[in-house]
Amino acid sequence: MTTPQDLRILLRALAGLTHQAQTLLYDSGYGQARRNETGIRGSNRHSTPCDQQLLATIVDTITPITAGWARNLSMDAQILIPTDVAEKGFWCAWMARHAEQLAAMPWVEDCVEELTDLAHRLAQQLTPLPEPGGIKLPDYATAGEIANAYNITPRAVRKYCAAHGITAWRMPDGTRYSTHQYRQARKD
């Protein structure tokens, strides 16, 4: 039996993980879109590409699942969802506020199971397994950085990336390759 307090803890944890993921995306990939106080873009420099997999997780998985459970609660318990919750996506906070009603729903165990699984998957995505050789690679790394992690030559990395269609970004400090795609290609 799930208690309202258990639900609050789970929903706050999921909200914290979602906020962490959104902060990582904002800090990495959306810097170019930021504006200063006058409304003018701060610089014309290229921003670092964001983690596409993390963005897809938030847009395609987290938001629809949490919004779906919140709408189920709203319909079954006859509770209106405020406009700002729907517009800004504060689904976990809204459900935590109504934890007593959520705990009384016949489908609460299914909700807890799905939200717990979602929180675990997001936590694993935010704290991935260590890299080979103990070197942590960023989402996009140079051929030299990847070569150091895998104990191969930078030339071998460039050739492998070209042969396997790994996404490459030309930056002022050199070409950067998607380390996620590189790892996936090496697993296959």
Rank of each mutant, 00 (worst) to 15 (best):
P4Q: 08
L7P: 09
I9N: 04
L10E: 07
L11Y: 04
A15T: 03
G16H: 09
H19R: 13
H19N: 11
A21F: 04
Q22Y: 04
Q22N: 13
T23M: 11
L24M: 10
S28P: 00
G29E: 08
Y30K: 05
G31Q: 15
A33E: 13
R34K: 12
R34C: 10
N36T: 06
N36C: 08
G39S: 05
I40D: 09
S43M: 04
R45G: 05
S47V: 07
S47M: 08
S47R: 10
C50F: 11
Q52H: 09
Q53A: 14
Q53K: 12
L54E: 04
L55H: 11
L55A: 15
A56C: 06
T57A: 14
T61M: 06
I65P: 00
T66M: 11
G68I: 06
A70I: 02
A70Q: 10
R71I: 12
L73T: 05
M75V: 11
M75Q: 14
D76S: 08
A77W: 03
A77V: 01
L80S: 12
T83P: 00
V85Q: 02
E87C: 03
K88T: 12
K88F: 10
G89N: 08
F90E: 12
C92S: 12
A93E: 15
E100A: 11
E100T: 13
Q101M: 08
Q101Y: 04
L102N: 02
A104D: 11
D110W: 00
E113W: 01
E114S: 06
E114I: 02
T116K: 07
A119N: 13
L122W: 05
L126F: 05
P128T: 09
L129R: 14
G133N: 14
G134L: 08
I135F: 10
K136A: 15
K136R: 15
L137Q: 09
L137R: 11
P138K: 09
T142L: 03
G144I: 09
I146Y: 07
T153D: 05
R155G: 12
R155F: 08
K159C: 03
K159W: 07
Y160N: 04
A162W: 03
A168I: 01
R170I: 10
G174K: 08
T175E: 06
T175A: 07
R176G: 01
T179H: 02
T179S: 02
T179L: 01
H180N: 04
Y182N: 02
R183C: 01
R186Y: 04
K187A: 13
